[in-house]
Nucleic acid binder design. Structure first.
Lengths: 216, 216
DNA sequence: GCCCGTATCAACCAAACGGTTGACTCCAGG
DNA sequence: CCTGGAGTCAACCGTTTGGTTGATACGGGC
């Protein structure tokens, strides 16, 4: 069996070095290119294709400090022809991240704190055209199918976003051209679905589940 | 000059491998031990000391998946005798994280996405007993001095962090062993300094200014 | 020694929020 | 056609929060 040729995409030099060291230590693995963010990754893929050099799998981080993020990059890569398999390797395993990655065409989702052997197996599977989910991720997806978490409506997410900017009920009512009563109704539904009982906790939970994004 | 002997503390095998590879590539650097979290780190230090093997610097992550977190570990390490310098190497550069680390006795604060050369220099400085701040961190602190933005006290930042988890005044009072009256006083000061007039807005502004970290 | 910032607490009142009940419309799906 | 979810609104009431005033205590700095 021939060598598995890998492109690393991660904005942290330390992580790239770690993956390079770890993968190079495995028999039959070879890191042939690296990129700090999505746009550079696409350039690397095209460069390799132009040179006729094969590429078997892209190892992609989701969170990039600057430049094109991992989900966008994955979508762009899957639009190429031929499109190499993209294996997501990231720090967080939130529903939103996982679903976005799968929707973008990723063929696997691994966590950075996984033991080396798990990462090795996932890369091998991805290179072979199979899907590879981290055990934690697989368990979460199965649990979600069995026990679907309540989904916020678009209006509720909208409220939540305004809420996170620190607006009062009155302000949100004005902003959305609805009455304070309606705002309160929505809030009650939101608290209900998130399992909390006040606005501050709602923002906390929503941020943790990455339903909304807070901060810079 | 003799070799700089390093202990790595990080819960991600990938990151440890990266740091090991990166540091081993530099002349005069040697990773002599590793630990996935704080308690194991302290055991490693004591083991080295028992064997009479020197240790010049501890490279410490702040966020650990399980076990003793980085701030607690740093505090514990600085209570040892002799206490090796602790250089924080983490992903986030929020005020809360930085202040907690410095307060715990860290002699430096670097970011994981820093270029290798910067990390090399910081480790060297820390090993030499000097302090080493990442340029981004240093710039933030300097900018704060030039721009006399109201500075939150440590107690106020502490409160803000609890606030961001969705706790009520009563809960925060219990948590911090103070009265609700004191909590309210602190909150008023916080609102004042952040230019807001309620808790939700305070969290929003604090997250944007990276005074605290929300989510994940 | 005095001042100022930090931290602590109490009492009070007004305003905002949280929770409930009930009701109306619209629209998609069985 | 009827049911159910989403979205809208009103009225009520108890609790929490926000704002103020005033007070004590401790430390560092001029």
């Amino acid at each position: 069996m021939s060598e598995i040729r890998i492109l690393l995409v991660d904005d942290h030099p330390v992580v790239r070095a770690g993956l390079r060291a770890m993968l190079s230590g495995f028999e039959g693995f070879s890191v042939v290119a690296e990129a700090p963010e999505g746009a550079a990754a696409i350039r690397e893929i095209q460069r390799l294709q132009t040179l006729g050099e094969p590429l078997d799998v892209v190892l992609m981080d989701l969170q990039m400090g600057a430049g094109m993020d991992g989900v966008t990059a994955t979508r762009a890569i899957k639009a190429l022809s031929p499109a190499p398999p993209v294996l997501i390797l990231t720090t967080y395993d939130t529903d939103a991240d996982i679903l976005a990655a799968v929707e973008a065409g990723a063929s696997g989702y691994m966590l950075k704190d996984a033991p080396p052997e798990q990462i090795r197996a996932a890369v091998q599977q991805a290179a072979a055209g199979q899907t590879a989910l981290a055990p934690e991720v697989a368990a979460r997806l199965l649990g979600r199918i069995r026990n679907p978490e309540p989904v916020l409506s678009t209006r509720e997410v909208q409220l939540l976003e305004l809420l996170a900017t620190g607006m009062s009920n009155k302000s949100m009512a004005r902003q959305l051209f609805i009455s304070e009563a309606t705002v309160k109704t929505h809030l009650v539904h939101i608290y209900d679905k998130l399992g909390v009982d006040n606005r501050t906790a709602a923002i906390s939970v929503a941020a943790q589940r990455r339903i909304i994004r807070t901060g810079g």
